[in-house]
Amino acid sequence: MPRTVDLHAERHGNCIGTYQELGTTNEVVVIGDRGWVHYGDKQLESTRTFAKTYAPDRLPAVEEAIGKARGKYVEYPAREVLQYPGLNLCDLGRAFAKLPGTVSSAGEKGNPRTKGGERTVQLTHGSGGDEVSVHVPEKGGSVPRGVDFTLGDAPALLELGDYDEPVRVKPPDRADIVSAEEVKGLDVSVE
């Protein structure tokens, strides 16, 4: 599971950012129904080590895939990219469909915190199954700065910046892309 995810995402399916896994930072780009992942060298080396240990018969295919993927963006359908833990947050429309563009300051305030000199309070918006806990500026603002949610069994806080602003993203250059089919040897699992 990624330890740190830093994404710029919008409700229209555009997303760009990074996630850390196995001690390396990987880049991700999602535009509509297409996604690209640029795997860091440590991630690729971890795949090689795993294959050597647990699937030595597949090592030649893994080596070939690593050679093709190194320094490139691997292109996937967006739905496959969004299966990575944490990267489902790229799809804000689904991940936070219940989160409104602004939040009423009515309701119980709690859990104050300060970030970047701005003090926020936690508000509960909605009720029952439509309840969302959001952090909004304590004074003079209703635009969410954070959302409390659960990722697996762990509580998490998603910090929001430039909320509801469009994300400007472009696909990687065609010369820097390799298809997932060409590097399917990266998918090493123990059967």
Score class of each variant (00 low, 15 high):
E75W: 01
D91V: 00
L89V: 09
Y73A: 06
D91N: 12
R94V: 13
E75M: 12
P85H: 10
P85C: 09
G67D: 09
L92N: 02
A69W: 03
A78K: 05
V74F: 06
G93E: 12
A69N: 09
D91I: 01
A69F: 13
P77Y: 06
Q83P: 06
A95K: 08
I66N: 02
A78Y: 04
E75D: 13
A78W: 03
Y73P: 01
F96A: 08
R79Q: 15
N88A: 13
E80C: 10
Y76W: 12
P77L: 02
R79E: 12
A65E: 02
L89K: 10
R94C: 07
G93M: 03
R94Q: 14
Y84D: 13
D91C: 01
K72S: 11
A65D: 00
P85G: 10
V81L: 06
L87G: 05
E64Q: 14
K68D: 04
L92M: 14
K72L: 07
Q83C: 06
G67H: 11
Q83F: 09
R70G: 04
Y76A: 03
P85S: 08
L87K: 04
E80V: 15
R94H: 15
D91G: 03
L82D: 00
Y84R: 13
P77W: 05
F96I: 13
L89P: 04
E64S: 14
Y84C: 10
E75Q: 13
L92W: 02
E75T: 07
V74G: 08
N88T: 12
A69V: 07
K72Q: 15
A69P: 05
P85I: 02
E64G: 12
R70K: 15
Y76I: 07
E64N: 13
G71K: 10
K68S: 00
D91S: 09
N88D: 15
C90D: 04
G67T: 11
R79A: 13
A95H: 09
